[in-house]
């Protein structure tokens, strides 16, 4: 099998006494969608925040295309082509959509000043793909609806030629039409060879979009399986009971009586 795009090996991080992520290993190949599943507080967001540079891991190793990667800040992650849609969206509420999309990577004019017109024009183009009804380009994102804000966060992640895309519950606030649009976007990005970590609580969405699922429970990995090899009920069993079915590769967090 080819060298994985991303490998996270034995990643651990603790906040105070709580081991939020404990010896978790996951990997992701180019053109693949890997869903991260688990109950609330299982450690999914924390795990991907380590990959996106938001938290430094206490232990473990990250490899990108087979080479050890040093990711100490979100800036580092972006240099590896890792883009993230955070569960909290991470938008600056007081500036407009374009300013958020380009935050940290602004388009500047010949004189080094911000080229707001160019940024707005580019933002309009990306948003047209995500949410064609979006019109409120001039307002601070504080004034937008939850779904509109989510569209802005997605636009920011896909605009900059991501190689590795992390989507932490990207459709949580979206209506059915927009959710469908994001689903189509995921498949299109996958066709382009982008690797995607998708965190979702919607098991049907996951089975529609993902190639593999990795399930976490209490900070530990229950197991990883190809979606063809397991049923939805088996995956629910992994999430709720930590029970690893025969079709899955068990991790350190699988319950012993399985």
């Amino acid at each position: 099998m080819s060298v994985p795009l991303v490998e996270m090996r034995d990643i651990s991080i603790a906040f105070g006494g709580i081991k939020a992520v404990d010896g978790v290993s996951v990997d992701l190949h180019a053109g693949e969608v890997v869903a991260l599943l688990g109950h609330n507080g299982a450690g999914k967001s924390t795990l991907i925040k380590i990959l996106s540079g938001a938290y430094p891991a206490d232990a473990g190793e990250i490899r990108v295309r087979g080479a050890a990667a040093r990711i100490a800040s979100p800036r580092d992650a972006k240099t590896y082509g890792i883009e993230t849609i955070y569960q909290t969206l991470a938008l600056a509420d007081n500036v407009d959509a374009a300013a958020n999309v380009f935050l940290g990577r602004e388009i500047v004019t010949r004189w080094g000043t911000l080229d707001d017109a160019a940024m707005e024009s580019q933002t309009r183009q990306v948003m047209a793909r995500l949410n064609p009804h979006f019109r409120r380009f001039k307002e601070p994102v504080r004034a937008l609806s939850g779904g509109q804000r989510q569209s802005v966060a997605i636009a920011r992640a896909i605009y900059f030629d991501a190689k590795i895309l992390i989507m932490d519950e990207p459709t949580a606030a979206l209506g059915p039409a927009e959710t469908k649009q994001v689903g189509e976007l995921v498949l299109e990005l996958k066709r382009q060879g982008i690797g995607i970590f998708l965190i979702s609580h919607d098991i049907h969405d996951v089975f529609d979009l993902a190639d593999r699922v990795s399930v976490m429970k209490n900070g530990r990995l229950v197991g990883t399986a190809r979606v063809e090899d397991v049923t939805k009920d088996e995956v629910l069993g992994m999430i709720i009971l930590g029970k690893c079915p025969p079709g899955a590769v068990p991790g350190p967090g699988a319950s012993a009586d399985a």
Binding site: S73, T88, L89, A90, A92, N94, V95, L103, G104, L114
Partner: peptide, 24 residues
């Protein structure tokens, strides 16, 4: 209003965590 520095200043004021996660 017209430089990256100024944009970052306002973004930090709006949401310091978001600015940091955006690579500022």
């Amino acid at each position: 209003m017209r430089t990256r520095f100024g944009r970052y200043v306002f973004a930090i004021g709006g949401n310091p965590e978001a600015a940091e996660l955006s690579g500022v």
